[in-house]
Design a protein around this nucleic acid. Structure first.
Lengths: 227, 227
DNA sequence: TAAATATTTAACAAATCTGTAACATTACTC
DNA sequence: GAGTAATGTTACAGATTTGTTAAATATTTA
């Protein structure tokens, strides 16, 4: 499964070059040479990574980045900013926009590629596929069905979300707070012990005869999907 | 593996504060309060980042930065300059020296920390890596598991934290007080002898048949992860 | 070598953390 | 609108972890 990269760049030669090279590397590329139209497109398409020219003519890259990083739904998409040489002083300003990386134009493509890969590796959990499995557990996100050993299991909405989240990085341990943030949403105000209860319910649901328990408790730390 | 930061600052209180706080965050810190001696030291030690006072008495920070940025071997080390308030207008001048960031004194430590992290992220994308090893000991921070010779070891929360901290800089000796601060947290009030007990427990946990002891006691000084 | 100093370890009580049942409340379905 | 399902909270039992103490052991000093 390949990552989807969104490029916002008004300099056509650069855009063409980037698109060409990135696609050659196997990435799916979308682009816009116009800041104003880029923002809604990014929110709609939810790419895995955004390459953003610092100084776009209409809506500047800095602004776009700020908007993205303020929006709950897309703030986790990593952003690499392309800053031209003369704008280097603005780097400091850029720190506060929350972009994950900066590259000064003109840049070497291999370097860019390395940085892209490095970032994508870190946000792997955001790259979701239609189907995920862990051992004998399978989740089909299209039909929203869950199977254990080929047998369908019925989960409540929250249990489904919880599993959906945990299975993205099965072995990673998440704190109750992290789970609340990602599964419940961070504005919500819910006791962290509530997570325990839902974990218990999820455990009961996915537990079938003759199968291992799949959720690990890590004392004073949290939970992970693992046995 | 933790990042190495070099601080050049002639104001002793600031230098002390910085060193203290940075080490508390787990960074390795070297320093110099003298510009002339700093330059060769930086070239020799090749830290991951340099914090540089703008106006040093002998050899100014600007000069040092210029020299660093002209030297092929160290030009890639990011530099953060600490400018005093009155010197703010000189920022523009400073930009040409190639420093990566500027902070005006007095500064808030959390802000400095954020900038350091942001810079380090670019240079060393995974400075606090998800995995650390020392000899036959491995700690996976993602799943929060510890292995000795490929075999999983189960640790209590505090033991895990202790090891997690010690392994960031193996061989470095930490006093009981330092360990209390880093592993327990500094508001807490716990006897320093308690550290001994936890070290003992950690020793027992990570000690498996036919493997060397990995924690060294340094009499009247503290402990280190070393054999 | 004895005394002084420092560290290791076992034992135990106190504190903390987790699992789950029970219940109240809210949201949804027909 | 009644009935059903889902959700969040609380309470409590049981399990694990933690800090302290004190005695045993080790190391240094005089």
């Amino acid at each position: 499964m390949s990552a989807h990269i969104f490029v916002v760049e008004d300099e056509k030669p650069i855009l063409t070059l980037l698109t060409y090279n990135l696609e050659k590397e196997g990435y799916k590329v979308s682009s816009s040479s116009n800041g104003e139209e880029a923002l809604p497109l990014i929110k709609e398409k939810k790419p895995d990574l955004v390459l953003l020219d610092w100084m776009l003519p209409d809506l500047s890259g800095i602004k776009i980045c700020q908007y993205l990083k303020q929006d709950e739904k897309v703030k986790n998409i990593p952003v690499i900013m392309l800053t031209a040489k003369g704008e280097e002083e603005d780097k400091v300003k850029g720190l506060n926009t929350g972009a994950e990386d900066y590259i000064t134009k003109p840049f070497s493509f291999p370097e860019l590629l390395a940085r892209i890969k490095s970032l994508l590796k870190r946000v792997k959990p955001n790259i979701v596929s239609e189907e995920a499995t862990y051992l004998d557990l399978k989740i089909d996100r299209e039909s929203m069905k869950v199977f254990r050993k080929e047998k369908e299991i019925s989960l409540g909405p929250k249990e489904y979300k919880l599993l959906d989240f945990l299975i993205k990085q099965p072995k990673r341990v998440y704190s109750r707070e992290q789970l609340l943030e990602h599964v419940w949403g961070d504005d919500i105000n819910v006791e962290s012990r509530t997570v325990d209860v839902h974990i218990t319910r999820l455990r009961q649901s996915i537990n079938i005869e003759g199968a291992k328990p799949l959720i690990r408790t890590v004392r004073s730390a949290g939970y992970s999907l693992e046995n």
